[in-house]
């Protein structure tokens, strides 16, 4: 019988390791393509972040029903995520938008502090999406939580200096975002580095498009980033964060109009779990999840993929 040729890649590069929160959670470190034990001795599981909102206004009922009422208090909600086994919490501060309540920055900061203290987990902080509104919030949050390295999400090419400054001033982590483009992701990492952000304070978000919403683009962009990083492109060796919650915006995932599509609770869960599986198999080091079922499935699958079950 002919021997199978050795197909393991021996890469010269590796993904950076970034310590999160109190330093007890680390993202990145891979030395080979995801989950291939024959070339990647680092068997770190991608970290899974459970998503929590500061208001339920606009949050899908389908997802809300999965949290037993505990979603009504963001701290309880975060604790539930911890019980499920999440490694991190992603706090979305959207009520800071005046049209959604206009919560003052100090209140948002206090909330994040409470969640951080209660869960002791690393926290991803994301804003309402309007940088002018978000910056004061990020500033307040960054100053309120000093005992845990937060992940501030996210800075893009057009407006990254403000958020980067907040991160630098308080030794937090800034997420550089680029829209489905390897070169842009690299450019973003360069811009942040040039601005003075330390590599151990950076994550990259290449935009994880959900299943059926352009997942293919993301999947390939992420594979390319990972390959280039392993081949030695240091400016792409920043650990990757993929937000998979976009799955819940897909009509096919959540629609309850056509009964032949099956129970939307299960369908949405699968939708997100598959999106996340594609994310981790193409190189995600951190994934943000909305549904507890999907997160739980993903945790199991990741553990199994890295040979820990």
């Amino acid at each position: 019988m002919t021997d199978i040729p050795d197909v393991a890649d021996r890469f010269s590069g590796a993904i950076d390791e970034v310590a999160l929160g109190k330093g007890d959670y680390v993202a990145g470190g891979a030395k080979g393509m995801p989950f291939l034990s024959f070339e990647n001795p680092v068997k770190r599981r991608p970290l899974i972040a459970g998503e929590v909102f500061d208001t339920l206004d606009g949050y899908p009922q389908l997802a809300a029903d999965m949290f037993d009422g505990r979603q009504k208090d963001p701290v309880e909600w975060a604790l539930m995520w911890k019980e499920i086994g999440a490694d991190m919490i992603c706090v979305r501060l959207v009520s800071t938008d005046p049209s959604r309540g206009g919560t003052p920055p100090e209140e948002s900061a206090a909330l994040v502090k409470r969640i951080s203290d209660a869960t002791k987990l690393p926290i991803i902080v994301s804003g309402c999406g309007v940088m002018d509104l978000d910056i004061p919030v990020f500033t307040a949050v960054a100053e309120a939580v000093r005992d845990s390295r937060l992940i501030l999400s996210k800075a893009d090419e057009d407006d990254y200096k403000r958020l980067a400054s907040v991160a630098i001033a308080n030794d937090h982590i800034v997420v550089g975002f680029a829209n489905l483009d390897v070169n842009l992701s690299k450019q973003m990492n360069i811009l942040l580095t040039d601005f003075g952000v330390d590599r151990r304070n950076m994550l990259t978000d290449p935009l994880m498009a959900a299943l059926g919403m352009g997942l293919d683009y993301s999947y390939s962009v992420q594979e390319r980033i990972r390959i280039a990083a392993l081949m030695g492109d240091s400016m792409l060796q920043i650990p990757m964060l993929c937000d998979c919650t976009g799955a819940w915006d897909v009509g096919d995932a959540v629609s309850d109009e056509d009964p032949s599509l099956g129970d939307p609770r299960f369908r949405a869960t699968w939708w997100e779990a598959i999106t996340a599986l594609a994310a981790v198999i193409s190189g995600a080091d951190i994934v943000v999840m909305r549904g507890p079922g999907a997160a739980d499935m993903l945790m199991g699958y990741c553990d199994e993929l890295r040979g820990e079950i």
Binding site: L211, G212, G214, L215, D216, Y219, D252, A253, S260, L261, G262, D263, P264, F266, R267, W270, W271, I274, L277, A278, I281, L305
Partner: peptide, 30 residues
């Protein structure tokens, strides 16, 4: 899902529910 992402050409199920099939088929298309 893993097989669809990584090089499988045929998957034989004993059963597949609609809520599983639609996302899986969408993945294949993607």
């Amino acid at each position: 899902v893993v097989s669809t992402l990584k090089y499988g050409s045929l998957v034989v199920f004993d059963d597949l529910k609609s809520y599983e099939a639609l996302p899986l088929f969408t993945l294949r298309q993607n």
